[in-house]
Simulated scan of single mutants.
Amino acid sequence: MSVEGNARSGRRPGRSGTREAILDAARERFAEVGFDRASIRSIATAASVDPALVHHYFGTKQELFTAALELPIDPETVLAQLAAAPLEELGETIIRAVLTVWDSPVGVPVVAAFRGLLTTHDPALARTFLLEVVLKDVRTRVDSPPGTGTKRSVLAASQLAGLLVTRKLLRLEPIASMPIEELARAVGPNIQRYLTGDID
């Protein structure tokens, strides 16, 4: 029996087994402490692997989070558009960016992933994804007066969730087939009010 074979006790054997162990540990850690407080090192420790292996399989922490949630698209494709939008145009920009993804070829697995996120995973993961990844920068930008950023961004998210259910799950007309620009003009101002208007 090889002594060297026993020396690698910190790594799980088998490529797929290692990857799944990391994903399981990541889901548990993200649900427990949130995205910001979960470190690659703590996830690696929980999975009994070297932190370098986590980076090898998944790259950045956000990429690991995307994989843990089984999302078929990197959230950064939408977040970059929101970051570049002027504050006074954020409502319509959110609608355009999100609907463009939903209506694209990856739209079906994206919607399925979000449905699964809400029904099969710990709800804490869904909250963490929404508050600490999707809405984090928006929450900071709309925090006026100070302390209202979370309330504003969650109100906006509730509008998006309703739109997702109406357009993609229930397929209620005319919203189900309404062009993106028309929906952006119709729904965008509501989201804009949540983000920058009077919410008292």
Rank of each mutant, 00 (worst) to 15 (best):
M1V: 08
S2C: 04
V3M: 07
E4C: 04
G5R: 15
A7W: 06
P13V: 11
R15M: 11
R15F: 09
S16R: 12
G17T: 04
G17H: 08
L23C: 10
D24S: 14
A26R: 05
A26H: 07
R29F: 02
E32A: 12
G34K: 01
R37H: 14
R37P: 01
A38S: 14
S39T: 15
I40C: 03
S42V: 01
S42M: 08
T45M: 11
A47I: 01
P51M: 04
P51K: 00
A52V: 09
L53N: 15
V54D: 07
H56A: 15
H56Y: 15
H56V: 09
F58A: 06
F58D: 04
G59K: 05
T60S: 15
K61I: 03
F65V: 08
T66G: 02
A67I: 07
A67T: 04
A68F: 12
L69H: 01
E76L: 10
E76Q: 13
E76G: 10
T77E: 11
L82A: 09
L82N: 12
L82I: 14
A84H: 01
A84V: 01
L87E: 08
E88V: 08
L90D: 00
G91P: 02
E92P: 05
E92R: 12
T93K: 06
R96D: 06
T100Y: 00
V101P: 05
W102H: 11
V106M: 12
G107I: 05
G107T: 10
G107C: 11
V108Q: 13
V110S: 01
A112K: 09
A112C: 03
A113H: 05
R115T: 10
G116R: 08
L117K: 04
L117T: 05
L118E: 13
L118G: 14
L118V: 08
T119V: 08
D122W: 03
P123I: 05
A124Y: 02
L125P: 02
T128P: 00
F129L: 13
V133M: 13
V134A: 07
L135P: 01
K136R: 14
V138A: 07
R139H: 03
R139K: 14
T140I: 14
R141N: 04
V142N: 02
D143H: 04
S144N: 15
S144D: 14
T148E: 12
T150I: 11
K151I: 15
R152I: 09
R152C: 11
R152Y: 11
S153G: 05
S153R: 04
V154H: 01
V154M: 07
L155T: 06
A157E: 12
A157Y: 14
S158G: 15
Q159W: 03
L160F: 06
L163I: 03
L163E: 03
V165G: 01
V165N: 06
V165A: 13
T166G: 02
K168T: 02
R171M: 08
R171L: 10
L172F: 08
L172S: 10
P174L: 06
I175M: 15
A176R: 07
A176P: 02
A176H: 02
A176E: 03
S177N: 07
P179E: 10
E181Q: 12
E182R: 15
A184R: 11
R185G: 03
A186I: 04
G188S: 10
P189E: 03
Q192S: 08
R193Y: 00
G197S: 09
D198R: 14
I199T: 07
